[in-house]
């Protein structure tokens, strides 16, 4: 399952980033940060395409030796980035897609909180739990 989940604001700064505690956190920061280049590229490419009926799922952003980075962008240009262990070959595109959808729903819930200021780091326990459920290996 996911080893790192990040939510990135429209202005490309992190709202939320969490990775498996056993690994080097900074490494994932770098991974997610550099993946934004690809996200930007994909979004700008998408801008030329039909605006409505846009696919939110960006697909595989880039593979590294150990990980695969997947992206998802909401209509408000908030990005979700998920880093998945590339050894985990059983994971299908559809599963990734559904994980992103789950994440998006949870994020929507966070946004619905009247005490949450858009643009602030996310500190929601519910969202945390969602992310945790994605990060533990599905049994």
């Amino acid at each position: 399952m996911a080893v790192c989940v990040a939510v990135i604001a429209k202005e490309n700064y992190p709202l939320y980033i969490r990775s498996t505690p056993t690994e080097n956190q900074l490494k994932f920061h770098y991974t997610v940060h550099t993946s934004l280049d690809v996200v930007d590229e994909k979004i700008s490419a998408m801008g030329k395409a039909v605006m409505d009926q846009r696919e939110l799922y960006l697909g595989l952003l880039y593979p590294t030796e150990d990980y695969k980075v997947y992206g998802y962008v909401t209509n408000s240009k908030v990005k979700f980035v998920m880093v998945v262990d590339s050894s985990n070959t059983s994971l299908r595109d559809n599963e990734i897609r559904s994980m992103f959808r789950k994440l998006h729903n949870s994020y929507t819930d966070v946004m619905c909180n009247p005490f949450y200021n858009p643009g602030d780091p996310i500190q929601s326990r519910a969202f945390d739990n969602t992310v945790t459920s994605m990060m533990v290996p599905a049994c």
């Binding site: 604001a9 202005e11 700064y13 900074l26 920061h29 770098y30 940060h33 643009g119 602030d120």
Partner: peptide
């Protein structure tokens, strides 16, 4: 305002 960026990096 508050700092917005990849603080760790």
């Amino acid at each position: 305002g508050t700092h917005k960026g990849w603080a760790a990096v």
